[in-house]
Amino acid sequence: MPATPVLELRRLNKSFGPVQVLHDVSFSAEAGEVTALVGDNGAGKSTLVKCIGGIHPIDSGDYLFEGAPVHVNSPRDAAGLGVEIVYQDLALADNLDIVQNMFLGRERKRGLVLDEATMEEMAAKTLTGLSVRTVHSVRQQVSSLSGGQRQTVAIAKAVLWNSKVVVLDEPTAALGVAQTQQVLELVRRLADKGLAVVLISHNLNDVFAVSDRIAALYLGRMAAQVRTSDVTHAQVVELITSGRSGELGLANGDGLNGVKA
């Protein structure tokens, strides 16, 4: 295992008004690995992701990138570090084509004018590099794509920028069997290319299929972060539903004590 994780969070706290959503959450993601982030509804997965992506500022705790403490206060800060987030609701504009979406907010320009040719080349190269062969033309409108293709475009958008960490928020939630398989293969390829991939999923089959490590959140606390090969399906279910499983997990099942992972 590499000495320093690409992304590391230490004792992160986050409250919305009187409601504390994240309690002393520690989390890390290594290059070349898929780290699955699991947890029941309301466990704080999405909040944690938004903290990583700079959408929510963190209340306290350390955000370390490649071992160095950083301050991430906006999506631009996160993108500047090389942290890209692919959100559940995709964040693609239906009325734009694939190239336009992949470069949205970061258009290549020549003077004042958009450099369409360069953007089209780079988009095509990125899709080819990810072995995406399902898209007919990069000038297709996103509205005409299937769910799996949209997810592919959203992921390709995230890796276009030589990013180091890619966080995928339930990328397979709305997909059929074949499409899920294709997206999971893409997720694995990202990690094999040396990126740190964080995969959020409710589907434990997906998690066990592609992940190297599993981090389980329970009621806003990190119940455990373990190697996938060290745990069974049933143990992960227990971690998700009660925060502990045998020696693993929170010391006290109600999740009100400190982390002991």
């Binding site: 959408i55 999506p75 631009r76 993108a79 987030i85 959100y87 609701d89 995709l90 964040a91 693609l92 504009a93 239906d94 009325n95 734009l96 336009q100 949205l104 907010g105 970061r106």
Partner: peptide, 13 residues
């Protein structure tokens, strides 16, 4: 982009 998906535009910076 803002007309097509305001939230996506916001997240795109």
């Amino acid at each position: 982009a803002v007309g097509g998906n305001r939230e996506a535009s916001r997240r795109a910076g």
